[in-house]
């Protein structure tokens, strides 16, 4: 147990260190330092034509923001702020990045959790059905559909849905923008829930498809793997029906590799969201990173990198945890070796 946590902690530190150093250096070396970019903005945060500030004031500002110091010192300062949960102030919006994150994180978590739950409760049964009818027509259909879903870029799905259901020349079934209608406040509570769900549906669907196909495929192949094991042959030869051998013996064991993959879906809460949130204008973390990049909003970009590395490592921790929970034969120390 102890060895496991030490190993994971080392991995966490190195990953976080690697990703933040790369992004920090990358951002600091760009033509036009972050500070100069900041100074070119007017009060509303728009990029101005020329820096309207004297050399002397600029020097003072550089000192204030530590730009007179070498890069490794600045990185240390940034790290120090990070430990105190201070992500700095957004250049574009002139308010603490932490506040912006607080607004965006619940949105992304709602979509991310939905996609994980859908993968769990639809993907796994789908994979089971395909495996149960292996080699037959149903298996063939499910497998081809899953490969199709898995290999379709999510932006194509989203755009086709938007075009045909979003009120162009075709059907006008779903809202196309944001999380709620403009008249949200005036609606009754049932109306508000309906409005939220209505807005949630299309982007939520796009969020789910990839993970659903991935988990279903894994479940199918892991169940087929289990069906070939010796203990299934033993169970069948001692007279157990195929049905109960399948459900009681193979199914339980087949869940082990699948469930642990759910941990791998956690980073998708941010990474998978950028394109979908851009298409449907969903104010989540993905859109925040996109806007941060467009605006060269360095504190926001650094915050996003930090959060997404944390999510990746959280995913690994959860995967390990699930592994130990679903498979009593495995201990934390063995997982740490992997």
């Amino acid at each position: 147990m102890r060895a496991y946590f030490i190993r994971r902690l080392v991995l966490l530190v190195f990953t976080l260190f690697g990703i933040t150093v790369i992004s920090f250096v990358m951002l600091q070396l760009t033509p036009g330092s972050p500070l100069e970019l900041k100074m070119q903005r007017d009060n509303r945060g728009a990029l101005g034509e020329q820096s309207a500030i004297s050399e002397e004031a600029m020097e003072n500002l550089k000192r204030l923001y530590h730009f007179d110091k070498p890069i490794h010192v600045r990185y240390g300062l940034w790290l120090n702020d990070l430990i105190h949960l201070d992500f700095g102030k957004s250049f574009a919006e002139h308010r603490p990045v932490l506040d912006m994150l607080k607004e965006r994180i619940p949105v992304s978590i709602a979509f991310g959790l939905t996609s994980i739950l859908v993968a769990l409760f639809i993907g796994i049964p789908l994979g089971m059905i395909a495996a149960a009818y292996q080699g037959r027509f149903i298996d063939y259909c499910v497998s081809v559909i899953l490969i199709a879903l898995y290999s379709t870029p999510v932006y194509v799905v989203a755009l086709v849905l938007l075009t045909f259901l979003g009120g162009g020349d075709f059907l006008d079934l779903f809202p196309i923008y944001g999380l709620k209608s403009d008249d949200y406040e005036t609606l009754s509570w049932a109306g508000q829930i309906w409005d939220r769900a209505h807005h949630f549906f299309l982007p939520g669907l796009c969020y789910c498809l990839g993970g659903l196909a991935f988990i279903a495929q894994q479940q199918r192949s892991s169940l087929l793997d289990c069906m070939r094991q010796d203990y299934i042959r033993t169970a069948l030869s001692k007279g157990l029906s195929e049905r109960s051998a399948f459900l009681k013996h193979a199914f339980r064991n087949s869940l082990i590799p699948t469930v642990t993959l759910l941990g791998g879906m956690i980073p998708g809460i941010l990474g998978g969201g950028i394109i979908i949130e851009r298409i449907f204008s969903i104010p989540g973390l993905g859109l925040l990173s996109y806007e941060g990049l467009l605006n060269r909003d360095y504190p926001v970009i650094m915050a996003n990198f930090t959060i997404s590395s944390f999510l990746v490592l959280l995913g690994i921790f959860i995967a390990d945890f699930l592994y130990v929970v679903v498979d009593p034969r495995i201990t934390f120390d063995e997982r740490g070796e992997g």
Partner: peptide, 16 residues
């Protein structure tokens, strides 16, 4: 460590 990086975000940042 590299495979734990948020690759898409990193790619976008590099290109931006």
């Amino acid at each position: 460590v590299i495979s734990n990086f948020p690759i898409f975000l990193l790619q976008l940042t590099f290109l931006a």
